[in-house]
Design a binder for these strands. Sequence first.
DNA 1: CCATCTTGAATGGTCCGACCATTATAGTTT
DNA 2: AAACTATAATGGTCGGACCATTCAAGATGG
Lengths: 250, 250
Amino acid sequence: MATANTEKPAFAPIKTQRAFEVICEQIRAQLAAGTLKAGDKLPAERELAAQFQVSRSALREALRSLEVAGIIRNLKGVKGGAVIQSAEPDRIVQAMQDYVHLGDVTLDELTEARIAIQDIVVRLACERGTEAHFAELEQIAERTRAETSVEARYECAAAYYDVLARATGNRMFGIFVDSLSGVLHEFVQGPGYETLQETLIDSRFKLIRFLRARDAEAAAEEMRKHLERVYRHVRKNIKAQAGSGGARKA
Amino acid sequence: MATANTEKPAFAPIKTQRAFEVICEQIRAQLAAGTLKAGDKLPAERELAAQFQVSRSALREALRSLEVAGIIRNLKGVKGGAVIQSAEPDRIVQAMQDYVHLGDVTLDELTEARIAIQDIVVRLACERGTEAHFAELEQIAERTRAETSVEARYECAAAYYDVLARATGNRMFGIFVDSLSGVLHEFVQGPGYETLQETLIDSRFKLIRFLRARDAEAAAEEMRKHLERVYRHVRKNIKAQAGSGGARKA
DNA sequence: CCATCTTGAATGGTCCGACCATTATAGTTT
DNA sequence: AAACTATAATGGTCGGACCATTCAAGATGG
């Protein structure tokens, strides 16, 4: 053995290129280059496997990877095959949920990030939102009041935040908001959630009024107070059930 | 055929549960419940397939899905198997890149989101960053000046933003920043990038001075101007190569 | 001629068995 | 005791097979 350089190994970690990885890379590259775009259709598995000169198993693992990444959708039957999907933020939310479940992010971090993001969203929505947006928000808020089940009300809340994010005209904020509230939703499974609902719904209507008045400061302040209320409630529940198997790390 | 209800179909879209999906769900569920956590090891493929009572192929597709999602890592050799990975934000960045490549996000949106996020990051870093953080930033900025290749300088830039995000003490911001700059990096492959470098490096040092002085306003302003400079440059390049196969949608 | 039904071929999903390179351990040799 | 070797288990890949699904072409009927 030659004497190892103690300073810096400088050896690139060997990267065994597996067949399915190469396939994924090639398809992703064509996607980034624009050769492939949403709606395009790939050949059938058997033919594609022949083109790549790999077995159908290896190709299927590649297609499966691309599918769970939300890039393609596999169609059955004759004239089937893989079609390039249009963009769906779901996978990003999924990735963030995985990240949180693997235990590196605390409730405090999630909440702080959410408050910061929503602050931006509210201010931009206040500036750029149209009356159509505000009307939609109002409609959702009224529907929330009508709903009774916790799950239905959460659906309404998600829709509310989604419209708010759309009002910014920037889809990236929608992604951030969806990700954070998707993850935080798991924490909001405690008792005494109903008692808070009246306050929360009032806050939504109040926010809409501020948005219509184009009062960014007041709107942002209202949203911040709202989120902090929810946070305090969630935090209390977390401590109550401290480590009962559910989402921990709070 | 019975007369279709024109009002609301109300039929839940059928969801053919494929074998690998069920497997993924079960493992993800155990992950969310805490039964499985980072570092745990799953049985070998053949044994796991027997436990789930599915073929090895179906199980492998499930494991492959979990691997590309960054949840597990497959080890070869005897005593091999799948081990639960610790959290890595790479997959979230990958998901965002896919989302952008699928063509729903414009350069303007990415830039606006980046400016907004960095504004938060800078202010928080200004408030919470330690001298250790600032020293690290300084070191990276000096290294940037020493580097010559475009790629090496990008590495430095990424490291710089990473430390900045770490200084906030909130990992979520690191994810957002990584995602946005990872995607934006693809746009920054144009001519005349070197001419801008001196200005950019100066801006980094200036920012560090503002951070040490705990002057959040000045720091945020400096970062904003910096990002807008980069944006104008990128935008110009995009228009120059308009639709030459590279990243479009600008 | 048009609408409906039947048929068939191609496809994705799954299963099985096999082989290879890699890897860690037990056993052997020095 | 150290170094080497043999062995068995593992993930990666391959090829073939069968099934339920799906769609299009052809057959049937009006």
